[in-house]
């Protein structure tokens, strides 16, 4: 369990640290104006990549679950309590 939590924390830091670094480094340039269009659309595209990736994984998982654990699947087997008829 500790390994898993540690792994999760490392994964979190891998995402958080670069973002935090960007935050504190940004805005220090002098005489250069932000290209608002590039910044906002860039954010939009990055967040869309996250959204579509998550959407694909979640919907793929749901499709797999439904197909794999349907009653008519030849690989399907009853759970222990179903087999014992104890529910």
């Amino acid at each position: 369990m500790k390994v898993i939590i540690g792994l999760g924390a490392i994964l979190g830091l891998l995402f958080v640290l670069p973002a935090a670094e960007q935050v504190f480094a940004a805005g220090s340039e002098v005489g250069e104006y932000l290209d608002r269009k590039a910044a906002i659309w860039g954010l939009f595209y990055r967040l869309m990549i996250v959204a579509f990736t998550v959407g694909t994984v979640v919907s793929g998982l749901i499709v797999w679950l439904v197909l794999r654990f349907r009653e008519s699947n030849p690989k399907a087997k009853p759970t222990s309590y179903e087999a014992a008829g104890s529910w």
Partner: peptide
């Protein structure tokens, strides 16, 4: 973090 950062810069 990304959204907050861009909003701050903008």
């Amino acid at each position: 973090a990304e959204a907050w950062n861009i909003e701050r810069i903008v």
